[in-house]
Nucleic acid binder design. Sequence first.
DNA 1: ATATTATAGTCCGATATGGGAATATGTCAA
DNA 2: TTGACATATTCCCATATCGGACTATAATAT
Lengths: 124, 124
Amino acid sequence: MARARTTSDVFNAIAEPRRRQILELLAVRGALAVGTLVVLLGHPQSAVSKHLGVLRKVGVVAVVKQGKQRVYRIDAAHLKTVHDWVKPFEQLWDHHLARIKALAERRAQEQTFVPNPQQQKGPS
Amino acid sequence: MARARTTSDVFNAIAEPRRRQILELLAVRGALAVGTLVVLLGHPQSAVSKHLGVLRKVGVVAVVKQGKQRVYRIDAAHLKTVHDWVKPFEQLWDHHLARIKALAERRAQEQTFVPNPQQQKGPS
DNA sequence: ATATTATAGTCCGATATGGGAATATGTCAA
DNA sequence: TTGACATATTCCCATATCGGACTATAATAT
């Protein structure tokens, strides 16, 4: 098996910096035609279209034909997926949990509970 | 150029589902030795170690030697990067912005302002 | 010193990029 | 119809995986 498809997941889709940049622009300006994005980003049209293609397949952006242009806008629902995932980690940096972390670290030793030590293959 | 390194970015690091799973476990249990993770995840030790390696290089986890075990814990600061990035998009789904989106879409037409139409190569 | 345990790292192979160039498709205009 | 414009798609290629099997390294026990 190789690396996962960029179109398999929002997480994979936003791993690419340029794709994130596109989303940022769409968020700020509301909706943009490909040509506008090409100008704003300064990347070749080919690249922009391909990135938009990935974002489209994942569902994080939606298109609307408008004459010969295609206007893209964000479909934030899928970004919410990412948000919902990181959100729970918030507490780990929000509060000064440094001390609690240290505590957990010490506790990890006794808790290590390795039921089946040195197991090379996963269980059925 | 090919795909970006998984170690280049937190975004790239968390693109992998198993890596996300590891972070979830570490968040809940506080800190865990590799062996424990191997058991909990059911993946071969080799794979777990490699994923931990990626997370380590990105800085989202930290290790502490404890005898012959290595106890990993989350270093949430780097996850905050992701959080800070998606956060601004929150408003796009929080409120029923459907109408506003539609408005922006219509507005996009006039606003399309393509200063240099059909530009295959990016500017210097 | 030697064996054992806990992890990390290497080698291999199949696969999915992402960029550039060129081309295809689709839409409107004359 | 023919042509120009806006986008999407295809080709080619260098590269970075991810998993599995195996090996190397480190720490502890005997």
